[in-house]
Design a protein around this nucleic acid. Structure first.
Lengths: 261, 261
DNA sequence: CAGGCCTACTCGTATAGACGAGTTGGCAAG
DNA sequence: CTTGCCAACTCGTCTATACGAGTAGGCCTG
């Protein structure tokens, strides 16, 4: 059992700061300074108990602080590790530009291939359903919709979960209602059906995930989600699609370009 | 001491699910179903200990799960409460349109007044500094910058903390270097100086806050931050400002409009 | 050599108890 | 009536202990 001499200091018993917070502070600083590198194992609970002369629950408490900050993650039977920052996927504001749609493959696949990652799409589900209050409002008082669910993975890791809602009177009986919507995706099909796209509205929120989202996206603790709701409008001003997307926040950077006029 | 009869069920000792998770599940469901309303007090630790027949640490453990999800918050000496969703500030993508700038007051003040909130701006600090690597890159290899820091509050609650960086050769000696940049803000001054704004790039990330951000924004546990970095370009393609903003995620919805072309 | 087992180490869950500190409301003293 | 104190209730911190369960590596057996 090593004594972790230079890496970590001591507890100041006269401080008002709780012991577990002092320990968390020292570990956090050590991580920030690069004393512990990405994916590196932190000292075990037992080692820290020995080093600081505190009880195990106190050490665990300090770990849970760092977990809540998304700095570390624990692996049962292995140890506590500095959480690596995964490669991020950049979403540019021109990602739905028509020129991208005309190339055939979906934006997600093209982009991931270009970045050298292995993309996958799964849990594809297409069904007709009643619109929720919110979706109905966004689509302009539509009652029934076609719902297309899917999950996106990069190199085996789930990063995004999305559901598209389209008015049934538009989508029913078209290729949009098929599992594979064909080249260019549903936006290409909408345009073929005469719904020329004019613009998109995107609403962005960030929050902690619900338990079901933790499961679907295999989220580590301390990782928020980005919740994006996009509404597509055609040139007649009609909302023709609402896409509700939940993304693992540590895997994304969203990027927008705004005119200054 | 009440028995909390109908609100909460029992523990299933045969389940693999940990007891504290089962308790958290029941509390979460009760909150979701509205059995506990916003700002309402949950049963005290002692009551739950009695109801479920578990130890206090187990109950606390389940509370900490819900805190991590941002669902509840504890107040020392009072109890554990359902966290209210604060009113959100909507940031539209046209918020920097020139027509808004020409009205004089800052966008933040105008908007908040319109929404019936009481806006404040504090911790104003203006100083010259060396650009960080990141800022320097975004501004096009600028070494020294003018940094303008400020914090925004709504009804006394801090919601946003921002720092603007401008190349020193542009800002030095102008009103931009004064604490009060005058009507229309620094963008109006930049245009008067001949830097006609062309467009903005915004990069958006979400993550858990660092301890200093928790302090500055008085964040409850389980509340992520939205990190937005905006770069302003003039009509000559030069980056004339970078604004680094950290927002309390529970107080904001960002909204963008994208062309479909 | 291959396979399986065993052991030591890791974190996960849970109990029981102690003391500290913030809050609230009632009661007693002035 | 007002003031101040006190008691009861709240969550916060910390200790000590116990057992469960996942992991990894070495060792033993076939």
């Amino acid at each position: 059992m090593t004594s972790l001499p230079s890496l970590l200091g001591d507890i100041d018993p006269t401080s008002d700061r709780a012991v577990f917070r002092q320990i968390a502070d020292q570990l956090r600083e050590a991580i920030d300074r690069g004393r512990f590198k990405e994916s590196e194992k932190l000292p075990s609970e037992a080692e820290l108990v020995e080093h600081y002369g505190v009880s195990r629950m106190t050490v665990r408490n300090s770990f849970s602080v760092l977990q809540g900050e998304g700095l570390v993650h624990a692996e049962h039977g292995k140890g506590v590790f500095v959480r690596p920052r995964p490669p991020v996927r950049r979403l540019a504001s021109d990602r739905f530009a028509r020129r991208h749609r005309e190339q055939g493959k979906s934006a997600f696949i093209v982009e991931a291939d270009a970045a050298g990652s292995h993309p996958q799409v799964d849990s594809l589900e297409v069904k007709e359903a009643k619109a929720s209050q919110d979706i109905s409002t966004r689509l302009g008082s539509v009652r029934r919709v076609l719902a297309r669910r899917r999950r996106y993975l990069l190199d085996g890791r789930p990063v995004e979960f999305a559901t598209s809602y389209l008015p049934l009177d538009i989508a029913r009986g078209t290729q949009i209602a098929e599992p594979n919507p064909g080249p260019g995706g549903i936006y290409a099909r909408l345009e073929e059906l005469g719904h020329h796209l004019d613009h998109f509205d995107e609403e962005i929120r960030a929050r902690m995930p619900a338990p079901s989202e933790v499961k679907t996206l295999r989220l580590a603790s301390g990782v928020p989600v980005i919740h994006l709701v996009r509404t597509a409008y055609d040139t007649e001003g009609r909302a023709v699609e609402v896409c509700d997307t939940v993304m693992a926040a540590d895997a994304y950077v969203l990027s927008y370009q705004l005119p200054a006029t």
